[in-house]
């Protein structure tokens, strides 16, 4: 299968003050595929994810060394604007975090701040398309002006996904997007991820190996701040090359 690489990290080291959180990560993420990052908690998978759209910038003590390329451009270059980067790389968080605004305003937030819609109609259209893409439109079309917080947990998370895709990002990062949801809502999100992977590059952090196996094409296993193994999902789960990966997927460490 012919794949192009969307994101590529080179000798990435991340420090929290004195503590080294990630050491020497070299990882390639293919375009329009789902890559899942797995590993025991505290292994650095979320830290890695937050490096990809420079969300770690806001943490005072966090220091990043090395390079991450998105489409041949190093995002840790001095003159790169994180605002532009984050418009290109959307993110969905562990806990659904809709803004305390209406459903419409939540989705329209990105297009509005970035000035993507020239008219009200265009904006309405954009919101509608995004909600449809997130599979939420039919559920909320009658109450688009109600606060986003009035939705159920799973709907809120899909609202956050709709919010992210409203600015047409190239990549969507998902940080354990289902950990706060019930199984039915989780199934819906997983379906959605599958659907979205046709158009977007998706990186998902998950603590559930089953989820990783279900949704992803490529799986990377992190342990103690190092990337232990990366490969096609079915390969990693059926015949891991490393002992540690084996131990993790069989439940010996975790």
């Amino acid at each position: 299968m012919k794949e192009t690489v969307k994101i590529k990290s080179k000798k990435l080291n991340v420090f929290y003050g004195e503590k080294k959180a990630l050491s020497n990560i070299n990882l390639e993420i293919p375009e329009r595929k789902v890559t899942s990052l797995i590993g025991p908690s505290g292994c650095g998978k979320s830290t890695f994810l937050r490096c990809l759209n420079r969300m770690n910038d806001s943490i005072e003590i966090c220091k990043v060394e090395g390079q991450i390329f998105v489409d041949e451009q190093n995002i840790y270059e001095k003159n790169l604007d994180p605002v532009l980067l984050r418009a290109r790389i959307g993110m969905v968080f562990q806990k659904p975090n809709p803004f305390p605004k209406s459903i419409f305003e939540n989705v329209a937030y990105g297009p509005k701040i970035h000035g993507l819609a020239n008219s009200g109609d265009e904006l309405n259209n954009l919101v509608e398309v995004s909600l449809k893409k997130a599979g939420l439109y039919d559920e909320v079309k009658d109450r688009i002006d109600e606060p986003g917080t009035s939705l159920s947990g799973g709907q809120q998370q899909r609202l956050c996904i709709a919010r992210a895709i409203a600015v047409s990002p190239e990549v969507i990062l998902m940080d354990e997007p289902c950990s706060a949801l019930d199984p039915i809502a989780t199934a819906k999100i997983e379906e959605l991820i599958d659907e979205l992977s046709k158009n977007y590059t998706i990186v998902i952090v998950t603590h559930s190996m089953q989820q990783a196996a279900r949704v992803s094409n490529q799986t990377a296993f992190f342990h103690m701040g190092s990337l232990i193994e990366v490969g096609k999902t079915e390969d990693v789960f059926s015949m891991p090359k490393e002992k540690k990966t084996q131990d993790y997927i069989t439940g010996k460490i975790g």
């Binding site: 969300m55 605002v83 984050r86 418009a87 993110m91 803004f99 701040i113 919010r163």
Partner: peptide, 18 residues
């Protein structure tokens, strides 16, 4: 105000003042 709201906004590419 919860940090998750800030994160959500920054992740959309909003500046601090926005």
């Amino acid at each position: 105000v919860p940090t998750s709201l800030r994160d959500g906004s920054y992740a959309m590419g909003a500046t601090k003042s926005e």
